[in-house]
């Protein structure tokens, strides 16, 4: 799954640790999501969407959408 988390995070001037603290996961988890190494649970995806005042599908995009 692709995502534009790094762009949104940087726009807000947040570090990975800041965002991690806001959604109760480790910094490594945010890093793994940003590098497409880990797909978050629905619960975490909702938390991230809430942080950026948007819908989940605005942050995350399935790999199929590329084709």
């Amino acid at each position: 799954m692709n995502n534009d988390l790094p762009r949104r995070r940087e726009e807000r001037g947040l570090s990975q640790a800041d965002l991690a603290g806001a959604v109760d996961v480790s910094r490594q988890t945010i890093n793994a999501i940003e590098r497409d190494r880990y797909d978050p649970s629905l619960e975490l995806a909702f938390k991230l969407a809430a942080q950026f005042d948007c819908r989940i599908e605005e942050i995350f995009e399935p790999d199929d959408a590329e084709t």
């Binding site: 947040l14 570090s15 800041d18 603290g21 806001a22 109760d24």
Partner: peptide, 9 residues
């Protein structure tokens, strides 16, 4: 935004 939340601590 707190850098480290209570949950993480």
């Amino acid at each position: 935004m707190n850098e480290t939340s209570n949950v993480l601590e």
